[in-house]
């Protein structure tokens, strides 16, 4: 029996799979987002935060996806570095702009939530700063990628950079426990269960699933584009030789 990673490591099988999986994930993302947004906008105001609690339904999913996308980037980079697998490198390269987008959204929506609740747009708090560092890792990855012409060297250097950046993920997650922070502590994965009423928790989890499905769809589309790009480069090289 072929395992899932082995199945998808074959470019032909990956292209056949992603051809139907990408639109499926995209459709799922739209359905989940419509349901999540409806439940989120019909939920009552929070007793402390008032209507600003509605920013949570887009801020928390963006923040989780910023870490999830980096985790995917790290795993793909590891596979690319160890097994020299071209599709793993394409997956890593394709995850970076999406992760940067989610991280930017987490920072901007967090700022728009922080201003009315904390009275400031930004503080050099452990959580906010570590997320900014995550954003800078994404930017550095993309800058390094575009700075190196040699595809093999770029893959190797970027994979090493991505693996170094993985160290930041636990810092982002536990920053609210390790340091005194203005940011809210762990709520959904708190000991003893989520510290949130179901009326807020259900739309939040639906929106997280919607963001994950959207990431899945866009990631597959971008990997497909990267496979096509490499095929075009290979064809161009063959044509130049003949």
């Amino acid at each position: 029996m072929i395992s899932a990673p082995a199945f998808l490591s074959n470019p032909e099988r990956f292209m056949a799979f992603s051809r139907w999986a990408a639109p499926l994930f995209g459709g799922l993302a739209v359905l989940l987002a419509i349901t999540g947004l409806w439940l989120g906008f019909t939920a009552p105001e929070d007793y402390q935060q008032g209507d600003t609690v509605r920013i949570m339904f887009i801020h928390v999913p963006a923040a989780w996806l910023s870490m999830f996308a980096y985790f995917c980037l790290g795993i793909a980079s590891f596979l690319s570095l160890v097994f020299r697998h071209a599709l793993a490198d394409a997956a890593a390269k394709s995850a970076a702009p999406l992760g940067a987008g989610f991280t930017a959204l987490a920072l901007v929506t967090g700022s728009l939530w922080g201003r009315p609740m904390w009275g400031t747009w930004w503080v050099w708090d452990a959580r906010l700063t570590s997320v900014l560092v995550l954003f800078l890792f994404y930017l550095a990855y993309m800058a390094l990628r575009s700075a190196l012409d040699d595809e093999t060297k770029a893959a190797r250097a970027c994979a090493i950079l991505a693996l170094v950046g993985l160290v930041n993920l636990p810092v982002v997650h536990w920053s609210v426990n390790w340091w005194n922070s203005l940011h809210q502590g762990v709520t959904v994965f708190a000991k003893g269960g989520p510290k949130m009423a179901p009326v807020f928790l259900v739309p939040l989890l639906l929106m997280v699933l919607a963001y994950m499905a959207a990431f899945g769809a866009l990631w597959l589309v971008r990997i497909r584009g990267e496979v096509w790009r490499r095929r075009a480069d290979a064809a161009l090289s063959r044509l130049a030789r003949t």
Binding site: L98, L218, V221, R222, R224, G225, E226, W228, R229, R231, A232
Partner: peptide, 11 residues
């Protein structure tokens, strides 16, 4: 993402 993929597929 869609434009990137469509462009390189065409190429």
């Amino acid at each position: 993402s869609l434009r990137f993929s469509a462009h390189w597929k065409r190429q």
